[in-house]
Design a protein around this nucleic acid. Structure first.
Lengths: 166, 166
DNA sequence: TATTGTTATACTCTATAACTATA
DNA sequence: TATAGTTATAGAGTATAACAATA
């Protein structure tokens, strides 16, 4: 049932022949069915990509979700919280906390809507605009890391394949 | 700065012309820079794929991480907890709880190692072997959903591109 | 001293439910 | 009644630190 191509006999078995021996050499462990699952590969890639994003934007302390919120507000000033939440697939309850933090840091402001007094129109502050420009430069740098990791062609192919999920 | 191709004038603006109007029609919101980021598409796709996996294996109450643990133990009997954790990129502290649950459900057993009495050799029970076979059939069904969603060719392309992340 | 499994804590994220003020 | 924003809670998941038993 082992499917790895790095199979090397029993070198990964401590005290081969002992019924209760423990195998623990990580290099020589097959994934079996997992190899055929797109979800597994996608999940591992997503973890790598988020970690690189977090590291690359570490100096400005912006995480992927915060970046996505700022970007969408920047491109669509005046959106309500519901609209942003729906567009990005974030729970509206969670967006409240995200915006609290971004508002505290003076990147975003909630403006009371005159048309519908239940809702807030979201806008970037002047400081937020400047900051977002910098975040975008850093995010572009991160994107180059992705290119270095999987190749320019493959990255473009990936974006094409997954275009429907945005 | 709007990048969506579904731009339709100001139909998404309630009371156009009001400075504090709120836009909330989700269909007409641009993503701007997000469109160029592989991480955003990958994240959205990963969410879709995990939700389908959870739904497809809902009847047997198995989640992606549980499936990956069972699969790796099934393909590599006798592994230590450390080895499984390392191979799958799971914290060893978290694996403890995952195994507690899988052991309670009689899918897995921890066998005290004679070679290194600190560690446990992990094995599937007979019941676990039978169950895993069923899980694999359901997981294959899930994989066909992925194929239906993005296309057979694209799925294969994706697996090729991301082969290095397994 | 170092490692394995364990326990515990904290923080992020997801999923709900309920509350308020509006509509 | 329904909706927007808010608050609260519970369950995953991630990241650490510390401890006992063992190496």
């Amino acid at each position: 049932m082992r499917t790895t191509s790095r199979e090397t006999g029993d070198s990964s078995r401590k005290r081969a022949g002992n019924g209760a021996a423990v195998r623990d050499v990580a290099d020589d462990i097959g994934l079996d069915a997992l190899v055929g699952h797109a979800g597994y590969a996608v999940r591992r890639f997503q973890i790598w990509i988020f970690q690189d994003f977090i590291k690359t934007l570490g100096a400005v302390d912006i995480r992927p979700t915060q970046y996505s919120v700022l970007t969408v507000i920047g491109a669509n000033p005046g959106l309500s919280q519901m609209a942003v939440a729906k567009r990005l697939g974030i729970e509206r309850a969670r967006l409240v906390h995200l915006l609290d933090s971004l508002e505290q840091r003076k990147y975003v402001k909630r403006v009371k809507s005159k048309a519908d007094r239940r809702s807030h129109a979201l806008h970037l502050t002047a400081h937020g605009e400047t900051a977002l420009a910098k975040f975008k430069r850093l995010a572009a740098e991160h994107e180059r890391h992705v290119e270095d990791k999987i190749g320019k062609e493959n990255r473009e192919q990936l974006l094409r394949i997954l275009a429907g999920f945005t």
